[in-house]
């Protein structure tokens, strides 16, 4: 059996496990809250920003709410949910005593989390367009800017997802990784403002990547930022993966 086939099977089994779980509606929750905040924020500042490109302003209001708070929390929620099935009723021991590679299990869980996050970005876009139409936002839709922002924002969640997946596989508790994640998310907006530390902080990275104002990471070259993001993702994935493959299954 090829590596690819093993991996596909593992992934499809993981997807099946999500059936009938809470993840379905949770996927909507983050983008919905982001949308409500975004629409509300846009209505409030509409007068002040007259003359600015309206779609970009709407996007900024959506992102400010969503990427600052809900997106990092959602990352932790997904990784915790996806390991919860196993932690709850001794799933690890059953699953890992099967002829399945631990690497495939770990990486397919990670891939699933990234997939869920990507769906979240798409949902955010859909809600943004719907919000814009309802509010009667004027002007051409800047597809390039929107898609770029959402895509890079997604990539910027990867280091955090890798970190949270690691923590969620190790800690038996469902609440502990979530609490850790929330504690580090709260100061994210302040840290994002620091040109020195912001780019290094996984909880601030999605916000930095998604904000339309280039000044957010102006003192720090774009290239350096993405090196940190991708490097962090690779390192954290490798560490969590290695730990998962070697550890005792209690």
């Amino acid at each position: 059996m090829t590596q690819g086939a093993t991996f596909r099977r593992t992934l499809s089994a993981e997807i099946l496990k999500m059936r009938g779980s809470q993840i379905g509606w949770m996927m909507w929750l983050g983008p919905l809250i982001g949308a409500v905040g975004g629409v509300g924020g846009y209505v409030q500042v509409r007068e002040e920003i007259a003359g600015q490109p309206e779609w970009i302003m709407l996007y900024a209001m959506f992102v400010l709410n969503y990427a600052m708070l809900f997106l990092p929390i959602l990352v932790g929620l997904y990784t915790a949910m996806i390991c919860r099935f196993e932690h709850q009723s001794g799933g690890w021991k059953q699953w890992l005593a099967l002829p399945v590679s631990r690497s495939a299990v770990y990486l397919s869980k990670g891939l699933l989390v990234l997939g869920l996050l990507l769906v979240g970005q798409v949902l955010l876009l859909v809600l943004m367009l719907a919000g814009g139409l309802v509010l009667g936002v004027e002007g051409e839709i800047p597809w390039g800017r929107l898609l770029n922002g959402l895509f890079y924002g997604w990539v910027a969640t990867w280091p955090l997802a890798a970190l949270q997946l690691w923590v969620s596989t190790v800690w038996k508790s469902f609440a502990a990784p979530l609490a850790l994640n929330v504690i580090f998310t709260l100061p994210a907006v302040a840290i994002a403002n620091s040109a020195t530390y912001g780019p290094w902080y996984p909880w601030a990275q999605p916000l930095l990547a998604m904000m339309p104002m280039e000044k957010a990471i102006s003192d720090f070259s774009q290239l350096n930022f993405w090196v940190i993001v991708v490097g962090g993702f690779v390192l954290l994935t490798a560490a969590g993966w290695r730990h998962f493959v070697r550890r005792d299954v209690a």
Partner: peptide
């Protein structure tokens, strides 16, 4: 070991899929 939110059949299906 079981996934409580899944039916008995679905529980076995996860393994059936995994092992092909």
């Amino acid at each position: 070991s079981y996934y409580g939110h899944l039916t008995g059949h679905e529980n076995l299906q996860t393994i059936q899929k995994l092992l092909g």
